[in-house]
Every structure is written in structure tokens, then in C-alpha cells.
């Protein structure tokens, strides 16, 4: 396969830029059904990731994603810090120490990441969390891989599915995380974590399309 550490580093940088650009939107979403920190949290986390990468890029995709995950865990806090941190860490672990990985490897790694989120947060689809964007994104990616699409096409399909998944959280009533305290009042708002997951998958598309 041809996805190397440079590609994954580009992904992390794309995320950092996207989060910075959408920081206020994410915070506004979190304002409506949470505590107005999601944008600041992720911006702090991915800024630290970008700094860490600037200080020295790991050689393998696996080590790179582990670095991203550990940095998020060390810098973000809140619910999203451990959840995204664990996701990147588990994905990194799944990639082992190969110098480059295939699209199928990536698909498996992201599945491991989703499993990490599910294990830690025990959310299922429909709970109005980041899982509602990541799970459909992965289904789309897996299918595209099976259909033999190229990385840019396949990840593009995943990004679209993530965005649709995030949008689909709007009518849901939250059953996990802070938004669940609102009960029925959580209905009618997009989940901030699902929105940031959509950003993250879109950033992957940007990286593979470069």
C-alpha cells in the first residue's frame, strides 16, 4: 500500500487547520446543548499535535497516529479528549510499525478507533454523539474499499457519510454526554462531537487528495 507517515502527518495538519477555522462554529454548537468548549478543546489539542509534529515526525503511520492520540489525551481534557485520543491511539496500534499502509489497513485501523470510542464511552448509534458520524463514515469507507475505489474516492465517500451522519444527529435526543442532561431539549441541534468528526474525516479526504 502507499499511505505513508507523510500522508498521516498531512491529515493531522489538515485537521488542525480545519478545527482552527471552525473553532467558533463548534463552540457555538456546544453552547446550544453543552458547555461551549468543544471548539476550544479541539483547537488546543490539534495545535499541540501540530507542534509535536513540527518538533519531529514519527516514521510510521502507526507511531504517528499514536502520537496524535497521546497528545490529545494529554492536552484536551473533557469528554472529547479521551475519546478522540483513544480512537487515534487504537488506530495507531492497529497499524503496527509498517512504514506504509494500504487503504484496507486504514479502514481497519479506523474501525479499531471507533471500537475504542465505543468501549470508553459506551455510546451506540442514535445516542447523538461522535459515533453517529464515525460509524456511517466507516461503513462507507469499508464498502468503497471492497468496491476497489481509489483512496481519494473512498475517503470522499466516507467524508460525505460523516457529514450526513452529523446532520442526522439534529433530530436525535442525546443519551450520552453532557447533552443528555437536557433530555428532549437536546432535540433540534447538531451534536458538536459529530460535527468535529465530520471535519476530521473531511481533513483525511483533503490529505489523501493532495
Amino acid at each position: 500500500g502507499g499511505l505513508d507517515a507523510a500522508l498521516f502527518a498531512a491529515w493531522a495538519e489538515e485537521i488542525a487547520a480545519a478545527v482552527r477555522a471552525d473553532r467558533d462554529r463548534l463552540t457555538a454548537l456546544d453552547s446550544a446543548i453543552g458547555d461551549a468548549d468543544h471548539g476550544a478543546n479541539l483547537d488546543r489539542g490539534f495545535t499541540a499535535v501540530a507542534e509535536a509534529l513540527a518538533g519531529g515526525r514519527p516514521d510510521t503511520p502507526g507511531a504517528l497516529l499514536s502520537l496524535v492520540g497521546n497528545t490529545l489525551i494529554r492536552k484536551v481534557g473533557g469528554a472529547s479528549g479521551p475519546l478522540y485520543g483513544m480512537a487515534f491511539r487504537e488506530a495507531g496500534k492497529a497499524l503496527g510499525d509498517a512504514p506504509a499502509v494500504s487503504l484496507a489497513d486504514l479502514d481497519e485501523a479506523l474501525a479499531a478507533g471507533l471500537a475504542g470510542i465505543r468501549k470508553l464511552g459506551s455510546a451506540t448509534e442514535g445516542d447523538k454523539t461522535m459515533v453517529d458520524a464515525l460509524a456511517p463514515a466507516l461503513r462507507a469507507l469499508t464498502q468503497a474499499v471492497q468496491e476497489g475505489q481509489d483512496p481519494a474516492e473512498a475517503v470522499g465517500a466516507a467524508a460525505e457519510a460523516a457529514l450526513a451522519g452529523a446532520q442526522a444527529t439534529i433530530p436525535m435526543q442525546a443519551r450520552k454526554g453532557r447533552a443528555s442532561y437536557l433530555g428532549p431539549r437536546s432535540v433540534g441541534h447538531e451534536d458538536p462531537g459529530a460535527a468535529s468528526t465530520a471535519l476530521i474525516v473531511r481533513a483525511l479526504h483533503a490529505a489523501v487528495s493532495r
Binding site: 461551549a36 468548549d37 476550544a40 478543546n41 488546543r44 494529554r74 481534557g77 473533557g78 479528549g81 479521551p82
Partner: peptide
């Protein structure tokens, strides 16, 4: 932690 954000491990 940061404002309204749990501390990190």
C-alpha cells in the same frame, strides 16, 4: 482543567 473542561490524566 481549562474553563469547564475536565483536567487531563
Amino acid at each position: 482543567g481549562e474553563i469547564f473542561t475536565s483536567p487531563v490524566p
